[in-house]
Design a binder for these strands. Sequence first.
RNA 1: GCCGGUGUGGCGGAAUGGUAGACGCGACCGACUCAAAAUCGGUUGCUCGAGAGGGCGUGUGGGUUCGAGUCCCACCACCGGUACCA
Length: 856
Amino acid sequence: MSHTPFPESGGFDTQAIQDKWQERWEKADPFRAGGSEDTRPRKYVLAMFPYPSGDLHMGHAENYLYSDIVARAWRHRGYNVLNPIGWDSFGLPAENAAIKRGAEPREWTYVNIEQQKQGFRSYGVSFDWSRELHTSDPEYYHWNQWLFQRMHERDLAYRKESPVNWCTNDQTVLANEQVVDGRCERCGAEVIKKKLTQWYFKITKYADRLLDDLNQLEGFWPHKVLQMQRNWIGRSIGADIDFRIEGRDEAVTVFSTRPDTLHGATFFVLAPDGDLAAELVAEATPEVQERFQTYLAGVSRQTEIERQSTDRPKTGVFLERYAINPVNGERLPIWAADYVLADYGHGAVMAVPAHDQRDLDFARAFDLPIRVVVDTTAPITGAIPVIELDDEGVPIDPGMDDSIDELNPAKTGLALVGEGRMINSGALDGLSKRNAIARSIEQLEAAGTGRAAKTYRLRDWLISRQRFWGTPIPMIHTADGRIVPVPHEQLPLQLPDAAGLDLTPKGTSPLGGATEWIQTTDPDTGEPALRDPDTMDTFVDSSWYFLRFLAPNDATQAFPSAEANKWAPVDSYVGGVEHAILHLLYARFITKVLFDMGYIEFTEPFSSLINQGMVILGGSKMSKSKGNLVLFKDEIDAHGADALRVALGFAGPVEDDKDWNDVSTTGAQKFLARALRVAQDVTSEPSVVWAEGDQALRRVTHRLLADAPALIDQTKFNVVVARLMELVNATRKTIDSGAGAADPAVREAAEATAMVLDLFAPHTAEEMWEMLGYTGFVGLVPWRVADPMLLVEDTAKAIIQIDGKVRATLDVSAKIDAATLEDLARTDDRVLKALAGREITRAVVRPPKVVSFSTK
RNA sequence: GCCGGUGUGGCGGAAUGGUAGACGCGACCGACUCAAAAUCGGUUGCUCGAGAGGGCGUGUGGGUUCGAGUCCCACCACCGGUACCA
C-alpha cells in the first residue's frame, strides 16, 4: 500500500508505524478478556455502543478514546479487562434510508457497521473483538422477546388505552422520554396526543427504587445526571383525598401536596381527556355535552408545543356538576380544563386558587371565588401566636388583614405559596403550613376520606412502535380476544423479509402488511390468529446489552448468570450526557427487574459513569445539515490516529465541550515525534541499572509513575498528557545538555513514557517499545511501581510572607525544623527590607514550605 | 419559575487552604537555510520603571484565615435540565 508520511512528524513515517501495529494487533488479538482460568481481578469497561448511522464522527472519536484510555490503564495495572464492542443496529434511520433509497434496512445497516468497524480498527481501540454483537440479529433480539415475555408474566409488560405521544412525521408513538420540547427527539416533528392501546413496561412500579438507589451512585456518576434522573422521576409527597360527587356513587380521588389548604378549595377541575370527564358529560344536558365536545376537540388538536407554551390563558368548561368537600361539605363546581393532565396523579384536582398559581389564574379567568386559608404575614418561627377561644372552646379565626391589597391574590393575581399560619381552616387554625399538612392528613385518615400518598412525574414506558426495523413483539391476538405469548419454542420470532413490504409511515405497523407473517394460529385452540404487528422501542435492546457481551453467542439463554455476576456491573461506563435519562434510566430499570427475577445479584448496571462533552466547531454543534462536519476519517488520514487521540485527550476536561478550533492535532504530532526521537536516541541496553542514572530525571519519571493511576481514576486525562510532555521535555534536556543519551535514567524515562503514552498513542508507544529493544506489546506490560525514595525531595522552596504577600523565597532542606526556618526568615535581607522596621506581631511557620509574618 | 453547573492570560486549560497561570496553542525574537517548511533556543498575565524593583490580578461585593482561585454569605453573567406535575 502506497502512502505519504504525515507532515510535521519529524521525519518519522507515522503512517507506516500505524499500519504495522494495526496489522500486528489484528493478528495477535492481544486485547481479548481473560477467561475463567485468568485469576487477575476483573474490570469491565464499556462505551455506549454506537448506532451504525454511517461513518464515525468526532463524538465517537472522543467517546471511544476515553473508554480505551481507561481499559488500557487497567490492563497496565494488572486487571483482566473486558472492553467489548457491538452495534445498536435496530432503529428508524435504517428504515428511513430504506424508504428513500429503496434498499433494505438490513443492507444499509450492515454496510454501515462494516464501515464503522474499519474506523475503530484505524483508531487503535483495544476492543475484545470476539464478543461483537448486533442487536438486529435474531440471535440478539431473541432475548428481547424472552425478556418481554418474562415481564409479561409478572405484569410488568401490559397493554392499556391512554393518551400517547404521536410523532406526526414518523407516524409512530413515542415514549415520554423521547419527546423533547414538544417535538420528536429523532426527527424534530411536532408531537400530538392520541388515544391508543399500546404495550407498556411498568417502570413506575420501580419509581421509588430508581429514585432512592441514585444515592448509591453519588460520587460515581456525574452529579448532573443524578439530578436529572431525580427530577425526571419527580416524586411528590402529599395526600390522596376522596371527594363525593353529587349524583354519583363512587368517590373521586385527587392528589394534593397541600392537603392543608383543603378549606380553601373553591372548585374542582378534571382533565378534559380523562375518563371521568367523559363519564360526567355523558349524563349531562345536551348543551353541556356540546360545549364540552367543542372544547375537547380543540384540546386534542393542540400539539405538545402549543400546550406547553407559557402564559397561555386558562380555558375550560363548567360541567354543571358538584363535588363535596369532605372537610366542610361545601359544594364545589366541577370544571374540565386542559391545565389538568389526564395522566398525572388522578387526572383531577381540588382547586385552591388563593394558594396555587394555576388555580388562581383559572379562578380569575372564570370569576370563581378565592379564599385565603394561610396567613403568609404571620411569623412561623418564634413565638406561637395566642389563639383565642370562643365560649365553646373553638379557636376564634384571627382572619387576615384584607386591607393589605398587596397580599390579596384576587387583586394581585399572585397566589400565596409561601410559609405562613393557617386561618379559616377550623381546627387547623394557627398551625404552620408544615404542621398543618401533617395534621390534615391525620384528620383525613381518621375520617376515612383521605390518606398520605406519593405521586410521580415518571410515566410507564411505552414500548410499542409502529415501525418495521425493530424486535417483533412476541404476542398473539386470538380470534376470541385473548392475547397470548408466542410459544417459546417458536422464538426468536424473526422479522419477515422487507422486500415487498410498504415501509412508508402510515400510522400502522408495516408488519401488518406482511400477510403471511402476521397470520398465525392460536397456540391453545389451533384457530387462526394474528401476531402483534408492532415492534419494540430500540431502547429495550440497549437496556441490557451490557449483559449480552458476557456470552454473545450463547443460544440457550440471554446471558449466563455466573458470568454476569463475575463481570458486571460495568466498572466504567462512558457516553454522552444525551442519554442521562432515556437509556440510563431504562437500563437501571431492567437491571432491577432482572435482579428481582433472580438472574443477577446486583441492582445497578453501571458502577461509575463518565459523560464526555461534545466536540463542537466555532461554538456550535457540528451537523451534516450545517455542513460544518469535521470528519473522523479525514483527521486520521491527515494526522494519524495517535495524533487525533492525543489532541482530543489533551484538549480539556473529559466532561467539557471541546471546540475543534482548540484541538491541536499538529501540536500532538510534534509531541509524538519528540517522544519517538527520545526512544531512538537511547543508547543504553535494557539491562542498565537505573539507580545509577541521573537523579533529577528519575524523579520526574517516578512522579509520573506515582501520579498516573490516580489521575486516570479521576479522569484527568488532559493532565496525564501534560505530565507526559513534561517527562519527554525533561528527557530531551537530559540527553542534550545533561547526563547524555547513555545515562540509565534516560532509558528508564523513555520506557516509562512508552508505558503511559500507550493510553493515548498506542501505535507510537508500541514503536517506542520496539526501538527500546523489547518484543512483546507494551500495551500488556504492567506499569512499574514508583520508588518512594525518589518521590521525597531533599530540598524545598520556602516562601516568606509578610502580611499575606510573598516577600522572599528560600532554598532550604526538606527536613528543616520550624525554629531554624523562622530564624532564617527573620534575618533574610529581603524580609528585613520589606519589614522596614515594622514589628512582627505574629509568625506562623509551616516547615519546610511557609513562613508567614504579620505586622502591626 | 424551579433544579443543577460554570466563571482563571489572546486561546484550551493546570493548581491536597501555602510562589496563580503547570502543559500546550497562538504570537514575537533568534539559530539553521539562498529561501521556506520542519527542527532547535529564548520571550510571552496586565501595568509603572532605563534597570533594580514595585503595584494590580482567578465574574462582582462582603466575610472567615497568618494566608483564599480554593471555604462561607449575597449578587451578576453564561450554560444545561425541566416546566400548567396539582
